[in-house]
Design a protein around this nucleic acid. Structure first.
Length: 504
RNA sequence: GAGCCAUUAGCUCAGUCGGUAGAGCACCUGACUUUUAAUCAGGGUGUCGCUGGUUCGAGUCCAGCAUGGCUCACCA
């Protein structure tokens, strides 16, 4: 929509009305020869450095041995007292109090201090003391305006609560809400910890393409895009799997990638169209090894970032202490429903059991799909403590090796905690002939209307035909792991910029 | 995609039975040299999400739409 000239003018006048004071202050600074959007400022300390340093010192000690500091941050509050004033500035480590007075700064510079607005970014040079209330404070001897703030911050007491604004203007959320800042710092630490532990086990971090010509490695609808110069349709990747396995073929025996995948599906408290997966592949290992690796990895990350394996998630108390329960999908279904699918031989029989147990199924579902429906509808929600569910049916596992004893099932597991899936792993299918048959079965599902079934990937089969060692593979949903370890109920609270509808 | 809920000042929120829009913080003016949700005196800054409808009169009632949240569906 185009604004008419008078519309624009009116809006500007409104803005002038509301924020005239802040804009007027740009001139105040410029008249003094000060650029209100200044340059580099060398700090000597961060707020937490100072507080840590002087914590144990008495007021007298501090007065005798003055510590001079240069810090920078955003002015968050101010309490004027005529010829003196207190305020707080916020830097990346937190808040620290500052104190300015006219007899230290001089008339001119004190006027400058008084001209500051909350939200302005300033540099401060001075010495550290403790106030009458014992709060560590920087006595300002020199003040530098580093960046003028033209928009007012939310209220100091209630902060920013509006969920929509918090997501759309995450920067304001990060300024105002300490816990939000901490959650995202924690997210970074979780990923750092993950990298450290994988590196320690000899895994090589790699980067594979996000633009694919075939969406493979998972069952999901992709985002479609187009390359202009090559006039070629492309999709955004839905998984990391198939390229990482090509690298195993290539002899990189332990690889992992932490990367964004894109799935064209709805949003919810647990789903964002783009999210972060960690996938790793290790030659000569199998899905049992992956269980051990998974539980040790997550336990170690919890210890690194939380210092304990005992965590609360919402109302629930969860122990991440290893070893975790391992149970066959069929056995757990039997435990909870009395139906033992090991003894069920035909799809017909399975279908009757579904109907008699109130499990919703569709006409095109085969034996394995029905077993999976039993699991999802009757079992999944009941799992609280970490549990490896293994032995998924072959129909829903087109990239996993069949179980040697019962080829209706695969050497695959998923990790469930508090009713949610956190990891998916298997002994990777490395038989190219079997792989081709699995893809063909997927194509038949596609014809029956499952638009999330796998496509044939000839290039991937060719890679297997060169020979892929027996390999264990694992995928972990990083966002969900962060939710668990930071006790956040919504995936949007662990994504800095969750997908939102655009505003006109 | 469906159901429920929300949308009022920069922010956090009140707003009765349908009768000319309110508070706190922030902001502006003034006082105040160790305050900390500083205090004291004065000042209300608004497209009540949008569009229609009912009505003498709508922030309030009705319909549609928009955005967001929650639940469900979808997501093996």
């Amino acid at each position: 929509m185009e604004h008419t000239e008078s519309d624009t003018q009116m809006q500007e006048e409104n803005m002038e009305d509301l924020f005239a004071a802040r804009r007027a202050k740009l001139n105040f600074w410029r008249e003094r020869g000060i650029d209100p959007f200044g340059g580099k400022f060398e700090i000597t300390h961060r707020s937490s450095d100072i507080i840590r340093k002087v914590e144990s010192m008495s007021r007298e000690e501090l007065d005798e041995h003055k510590i001079y500091v240069k810090i920078a941050g955003r002015l968050m509050s101010r309490r004027g007292h005529g010829k003196a004033a207190f305020g707080h500035i916020l830097d990346s480590d937190g808040m620290i109090q500052i104190y300015a007075r006219i007899d230290t700064l001089g008339e001119d510079h004190y006027q400058e201090f008084k001209a500051l607005d909350i939200g302005d970014i300033i540099g401060v040079e001075g010495f550290v003391f403790k106030s009458n209330h014992g709060e560590v404070t920087v006595h300002v001897e020199h003040l530098t305006l580093l960046a003028k703030s033209l928009l007012p911050l939310p209220e100091k007491w209630h902060g920013l609560r509006d969920v929509e604004t918090r997501y759309r203007r995450r920067y304001v959320d990060l300024i105002m809400n300490t816990d939000v800042r901490e959650t995202f710092i924690m997210r970074s630490r979780i990923i750092q910890s993950m990298r450290r532990h994988l590196e320690a086990q000899g895994f090589l971090e790699v980067e594979t393409p996000t633009l694919h010509s075939i969406a493979g490695g998972a069952a999901a609808r992709p985002f479609r895009t187009h390359h202009n110069a090559l006039d070629m349709p492309l999709v955004m990747r839905i998984a990391l799997e198939l390229h990482l396995k090509r690298l195993i073929v290539g002899g990189l025996e332990r690889v992992y990638e932490i990367g964004r995948v894109y799935r064209n599906e709805g949003v919810s408290t647990r789903h964002n169209p783009e999210f972060t997966m960690m996938e790793l592949y290790a030659a000569y290992m199998d899905f049992q090894d992956m269980m051990k690796l998974t539980e040790e990895l997550i336990e170690q990350i919890a210890l690194d970032v939380r210092g304990t394996t005992e965590i609360s998630y919402g109302e629930r108390q969860i122990s991440l202490r290893t070893p975790w329960r391992r149970v066959h999908m069929v056995d757990l279904i039997a435990e909870l429903t009395g139906v033992n699918f090991f003894t069920v031989q035909t799809t017909e029989e399975a279908r009757k059991l579904a109907i008699s147990h109130g499990v919703a199924i569709t006409d095109t579902m085969e034996f394995g799909h029905i077993v999976n429906e039993f699991f999802e509808q009757k079992v999944e929600d009941t799992i609280v403590d970490p549990t490896f569910i293994y032995g998924h049916p072959v129909e829903i596992s087109p990239l996993a090796k069949k179980n040697a004893e019962d080829p209706r099932f695969t050497d695959r597991f998923e990790l469930f905690i508090a009713g949610r899936e956190y990891a998916n792993a298997f002994s990777e299918l490395n038989d190219p002939i079997d792989q081709r048959e699995r893809f063909e079965a997927q194509l038949r599902e596609r014809e029956l209307g499952n638009d999330e079934a796998h496509e044939m990937d000839e290039d991937f089969i060719m890679a297997l035909e060169y020979g892929m060692p027996p390999t264990g593979g694992l995928g972990i949903g990083v966002d969900r792991l962060v939710m668990l370890l930071t006790n956040q109920p919504s995936i949007r609270d662990v994504l800095l910029f969750p997908l939102m509808r655009s505003v006109e």
